[in-house]
Design a protein around this nucleic acid. Sequence first.
RNA 1: GGCGCCGUGGCCAAGUGGUAAGGCGGCAGACUGCAAAUCUGCUACUCGUCAGUUCGAUUCUGACCGGCGCCUCCA
Length: 490
Amino acid sequence: MATPEFRLYNTLTRRVEPFAPADGETVRLYTCGPTVYNPAHLGNFRTFLFEDLLRRTLRLRGWKVKQVMNLTDVDDKIIKRAQEQGKRISEITEPITEIFFRDLEYLRIEPAEVYPRATEHIPEMIALVQSLLEREIAYQAEDGSVYFAIARFPGYGKLSRLDTRSIRAGARVAADDYNKEDVRDFALWKAAKEEDEAAGAAWDSPWGRGRPGWHLECSAMARKHLGDTLDIHCGGVDLVFPHHEDEIAQSEGATGVEFSRVWCHGEFLLTEGAKMAKRVGNVTNVDGLREAGISTSAFRHFVFSTHYRKQLNLTEVALEASVSAVRRVDEFADRLYATRGGTAALAVAADELEQDATAALFDDLNAPEAMGALFTFIRKANAELDAGGKGDGELERARNAFGAINKVLEIAPIKRLPGEVSMSPQELIADEETAFDRGVRDWAEERVAARRAARERRDFATSDAIRKELESRGIEIKDTASGTQWKKVR
RNA sequence: GGCGCCGUGGCCAAGUGGUAAGGCGGCAGACUGCAAAUCUGCUACUCGUCAGUUCGAUUCUGACCGGCGCCUCCA
């Protein structure tokens, strides 16, 4: 099978264009990470899931990926929170960082290769500011802050295509900004205030005590871990301006070479038609998802059901549709791995799945279309499994194709063949959480056995009464060929 | 005001200059003591409105209507 061309939309050119890593082997990927002052909300995770899809698709194509995701552990919001609680910033950021990693794991987002923290890269940031000062595209203000001079960087605005002249004259200007030469200039280094010192958010620099500006960390950390030119830089659309525009200005101003060859931005997650944001108060986070009984697979399905460059509306019905859809995938996966043999048509369907889903994914990460191919395969394969073929090779082909595509989307747990029984820590946790108390379990087992006895003597009245009794305690049963299964539903 | 995106069946959502993937739901059938679950089949003469280009447009162009995002620290 010929490998389809890999194409990505590049915000820089506003076009879908062919992509390959510069060295032909490893994709150097930088993804803007969270500011760790609050647990990330589902909107953040839509972006991280899009980036997860990207890295998995890059790997499906056969490339290696070196992904760097920064953790912003010093910024205004963190300092404000630390101040409110009389804490140092690390006391705020450390527990939140732990929650972040736990949430990533819950959503089965593949870990990045490096998670650099801003506070651990102060020397690199200072060095970057110094080279900008040497090149005279940055200047020091009276209070010790250092600003980037937009007017002295000709390429400014190439990513966002915002006409800087049209920025509204009446736009608010923060109180500490009166030192700027031009309102549009942004801070590279902020002179320390008392509250910064108190929160442990100030460092020595050639310009006195201070702390880094927001945009600076990404430029410095990307450069340190991935080199001067990245293959791909990702983030949410809201970062296009000013964050990414400013990163480009800083990095290219300092190095003189292109900062990132390709820029990819994921669209917003909306809640009932409006942008999801912490300040709006319509936040739902990963804990909310768990409480609502939305599985990881269901949420991934929900996110991948819309192309990453289109806004996605989070609604209860949409989530529930995904819960149902994913149940079918799961049933099918169980069946595929438990069955004995396949037919010739099954192998054909498997080839189609792999071809269609791969082509869709390589065409600017068209996950909705890839899922369409997956569901088409499931329908065809179910019919073929009903036909009961004997071919081991055909079955193997089906498992491989399904496994390969599911390895990218992961809307069903990754199946292991007999012998591969290792469970991830996450699965063990999930198991623990769905387990019931011993007492309830023993009682349920006993009742199910009593019902089985009743059914054997065709005493269906007793059988139905026991079912009702179980249901009243929140236990649902279903009779299958291999016996009666039961599970707690509430 | 500037920049940009979107409007496809009851709901969600791909897509192409040549006549509409997929999911959810619904309906029917198979299975079942019943139930649930599962599987199978069916479910858009039509793609916001009005013009235009074209042999032909949902797909291109224009206008209009409706929804949304960005325009300094929000993924």
